[in-house]
Design a protein around this nucleic acid. Sequence first.
RNA 1: GCCCCGGUGGCGAAACUGGCAGACGCACGGCACUUAAAAUGCCGAGACCCGCAAGGGUCGUGCGGGUUCGACUCCCGCCCGGGGCACCA
Length: 1022
Amino acid sequence: MSYDFVNIEHKWQTNWETQRTFATPNPGQPGFDPSKPKYYVLDMFPYPSGVGLHVGHPLGYIATDIIARYKRSRGFNVLHPMGYDAFGLPAEQFAVEQGVHPAITTNQNIMNMTRQLKRLGLSYDWERSVATTDPEYYKWTQWIFLQLYDAWFDPFRRMARPIDDLFTELEAGRILVGIEGEAVLSSNTEGVDAVTGLPVGTRKLHELPPAELHAFIDRQRLAYMDEVPVNWCPQLGTVLANEEVTNEGRSERGNFPVYRRPLRQWMLRITAFADRLLEDLDLVDWPAATKMMQRNWIGRSEGASVKFPLGMGASSGLDDELVVFTTRPDTLFGATYMVLSPEHPLIDAISTAEQFHAVNAYRIAAGEKSDVDRIAEAGSGVKSGVFTGAYAINPVNNQPIPIWIADYVLMSYGTGAIMAVPAHDSRDFAFARHFKLPIRPVVMPDDAWLNAHGPREMVGGNPDALRAAYAADPARFDEAFTDHGTAINSNNEELSLDDHGTAQAQAEMIEWLEGNGRGRRHVQYKLRDWLFSRQRYWGEPFPILHDADGTSMAVEESDLPVLLPEMEDFRPAASDDPDAPPQPPLSRAPLAWKQVVREGRTLQREFNTMPQWAGSCWYYLRFLDPRNGERFVSAEAERYWMGGPTAATRDVGAASMADDGTASKADDGSAAMTSAGIESSRAGGHAGSKVSGQVGGVDLYVGGVEHAVLHLLYARFWHKVLFDLGHVSTPEPFARLFNQGYIQAFYYEDARGVRVSAEEIEERDGAFFYQGQPVTRHMGKMGKSLKNAIAPDDICAQYGCDTLRLYEMYLGPLDQSKIWRTADITGVHRFLQRLWRVFVNEDGSLRISDDAPPLDLQRLLHRTIKRVTDAMDNLAFNVAIAALIELNNELVKRYASDEVARTSGRAQIGVPRQIAEPMVLLLAPLAPHIAEELWQKLGHHASLSAEAWPRWEQAFLIEERIEYPVQINGKLKSKISVPSDADDAAIQAAASADEKIAPLIAGMKIKKAIIIKGRMVNLIVG
RNA sequence: GCCCCGGUGGCGAAACUGGCAGACGCACGGCACUUAAAAUGCCGAGACCCGCAAGGGUCGUGCGGGUUCGACUCCCGCCCGGGGCACCA
């Protein structure tokens, strides 16, 4: 009987489903074993695509399945769920293309993808499956949104707290309301009023009219509405988050142009968590590249904010000041001009009449400049700009300096204004040279730099002369000196930085600025708040109601979910016009949905929907308890599967965090660096497994690197809010992250550069043809757009999914990109065929003997167990498969060759059961169907998924004799075989006596013999 | 420009903590079985040189140095490829 994979695989997939083999009980449920440790292994869930899977998609799913099966046999309670991220643009666009309602296409696609995934034999607990579009799911997405809406960020404690606590803080006078309605800490030392002892212009709770109080509270929420410059994509008919816009200023989805435009939108206050999102990366075991991307995205810079009073020419009449952020406060004496971004709001107020025309012309030109132009300009180093006619006063020397505008200063970072220090910033240097602005050196470079960048005629000259030349005119040097050095020209009456190193000078300058109320230490982040609303139909409705007077309020928890209304026309209001107003499709919903009457007042629902990312921010929590109708997840299930610390431990951590936050100067929410709690857990070390043990969370999370910032940053943010509010027990959601590589394949382009179907390519004499026409071959990520996708269904039909699983894992390390070559499948397919044949006779009977296996075979088995086990622990499945092939080759050699069959008589000789059974168990996570079938043939009635992983015994790993390579002066010359218990002297004697070695060392003196037990011998002769 | 990751036979790749480089697979060559092919099994194989042969020698993990008895592995300086960030003050 040959290896009939079609029937075997179908049989076992059906069996697993009907026997509920992989259904995983929660604590307290029947069948739950509390004595076992837990292991939560998770895939990034897919969106249900209309074209289905290609063989690149399951790469990660196969890997997690192998781990899930392996961990089960290692005695863990394994949680391994799968679901669908079904809201969002792709699903909606597919529905629009098909002209079918997205609810229908989404369900069809989910069914198709589930069928495809089940065919791969993946051991998911399908009973836990969720779709983010299910009202029973998005009810809780809305509920979490309300947690954000009903929370604020307490800068004292550096954590999210219920909004009601804000009243407490107002009553206690710890929080005050500032001039512009902003929150001010009473501990703020800046501009304190001499009479009240409080910051100037601030008011306490009882001084506020109710409407202002309401507006103030709304502005503190973690989910708030604000009019901000947003990314507006008219062709998608929606606004987009910064993370969804490419560097070229186009939409990540669809590649449509995106325009910046002020609109009132929902925002989530992720910036409040910037420092914790940054610090806690040290707690998790993630790929270095992914951590790096998150760090870059958060973009933390330490420095100072500095106030520059406006001076001559300023027409505002106010005692205005210009605040800038700098990472180099030590160079303040070198600030010879200032630059505002062209969008800066102060420009109109300060520009002089003579310059107004030029300023306006520049502003318009800058606004029309495309992002591509700006990038090109940045690359070229050419700077454009215009003088406003106004001056500011440099606070350290009271000198007036001109204020320019230029588009190399971005409104979206810092304050949209800079102090320019041309001597020590390359952009300012280029600008100052171009516009002949003064360049004042305030940091002396080292001699090496001066030599490398000085005027040609001075190279190699006297260092003193070079220094003098630099101090006299840095413009003679070919670039700005931007490194640390020694301060010069940096003294005033109260401050002398000269001769101090940069780090010291920075500290002294900040001290001076703070002492004189001219500035303060400041940490700046690139991260901006998360634009959370979309003008699309296929998303979660906001659980928010608006009153006619403009106030908004939360939908009652008991009224959740707010169902997405049935609509025939769900299409977005797409347009080519950048100035077209956003028109959320829900504004066209039936009146019965749009209007809600509460306490006699008619309220209007929010018409925006949530973005794609909302559902994926917390799905890993819903899997823990997917059918819970009372809570988003039960506390018990959450604590068990996420493995968070016990309640007692957590209280200690929270207390220390509060103490530290209170003690530090967390004035603007950015100054407090590290909390004691985080510092101490960080001290636990950097080794992955140790750290993940401490932090809790998903034990292994596998997915593509494309989510390095978007999904992973958003999910961490939500998780931290839920953690602060006491809804989850761990500070981080994903203890260990693994990014699998992509599957690449050849694709083909015809003479016009149009891609043609890779399936229909013919190869002749190394050239490629499509329908007779020559085409060129390229390599790229497998997918629909390159027309090189291969469906797993086809491979399963032809070779079986065990073969597909093995092939994908055997291609190479999981985190690398790999090239798919269907022809190469034959290698692993042969392995399974040979395995089958060595166990099973042609008539289907088993070729197994109950004889004790020979010792050398036992040793090979135990070596294999060790190798496979180590490989599994390292996710090195290619190595595990190689070890199994090697063992199988040995079995074939001994028990299946024609020679053996002829001389011994078939069925008389078979694989010893003591070898066969452990081998089948080792194979089971990788190729589960054939393993189950063989296991059953071996006489077992239950699924092998309940069997324990084979153990290797040290005794079988020890050989009687060890073969030592013998080197002379480090060069391999011979090999000797020595009893494994031989001591060094015996080994050396054997080596010296070896027939190849003896003549080489004859008459020489052995200066030194290096003998590494069990490894090698190296004789040093002279 | 800055940051991260990588570079090992014709190809995909192994190599624990510095200890026999190339396990395992593909492709390839030879042999057996076969009318033949396929399939299957066995054998061979890093490159170069010497030898009829058995065998022997030299070189070899991107390049150049260094540390070490010993380096794919550690250090310094380059080259190439992939990815990320990119006027972020």
